[in-house]
């Protein structure tokens, strides 16, 4: 594949966006996607390891060319501290899924308990009428368990957005210190 084709091939990208903890940012971020008619397949917001700094984790299916343009427009937002794009091999990531099944299903043999144990899931809550199971993993894994639990009459299913941590050595704290010290806040015209 030549470089141009490679840049236009649609695949999955994970964006990690550091922002000031302010209202309206979610809206500002999604506008950049909707403007270009791009779909966000997963989104998660949490605080980061630095006080007052939020981290958005956004998963989207698009081309490298497009994600490059999108991330630059994200960085342009005044309250965005930084935005990074990762491909699958550059991050560790997880999602969490919760499944609610009728307690009745457990009373009819060990099949569910085996299932839960063998798929690395765990039982969170046991109530009289339902049991809640939790599984952490990639979406194909949580989906697999979903398929297996389906015959028992799933009462409710929910899956979180992706959370991802990059394999890079960059420290957020240091990164923000650098921003704070940067001289790019004002114009300086050098004499040559």
């Amino acid at each position: 594949m030549n470089e141009e084709d490679e840049n236009l091939k649609v695949r999955e990208f994970t964006l990690s966006v550091l922002t000031e903890d302010k209202s309206g940012l979610l809206n500002l971020l999604t506008i950049i996607f909707t403007r270009r008619n791009l779909n966000i397949s997963s989104l998660n917001v949490s605080n980061s390891e630095v006080r007052g700094v939020s981290r958005f984790t956004i998963v989207t299916q698009t081309s490298k060319d497009m994600v490059g343009k999108v991330v630059k427009q994200i960085r342009k937002l005044v309250d965005v501290l930084g935005a990074f794009v990762y491909e699958e091999d550059q991050i560790f990531y997880q999602e969490i899924a919760l499944y609610k099944v009728p307690t009745q299903a457990f009373l009819e043999g060990n099949r569910i308990e085996d299932l839960v144990r063998n798929s690395g899931a765990r039982i969170l809550v046991i109530e009289k009428d339902h049991i809640i199971i939790e599984k952490t993993g990639h979406s194909n894994e949580t989906h697999e368990l979903y398929k297996k639990l389906e015959p028992f009459g799933l009462l409710e299913f929910v899956r979180s957005g992706r959370v991802a941590i990059s394999k890079s050595k960059r420290k957020t704290e240091a990164y923000i210190k650098e921003l704070e010290a940067s001289e790019s806040n004002k114009l300086s015209i050098k004499d040559f």
């Binding site: 922002t19 806040n185 004002k186």
Partner: peptide, 11 residues
């Protein structure tokens, strides 16, 4: 004079 998340003049 400065906003830490806003860098209008790239080096």
């Amino acid at each position: 004079e400065r906003i830490r998340s806003y860098h209008p003049y790239p080096e």
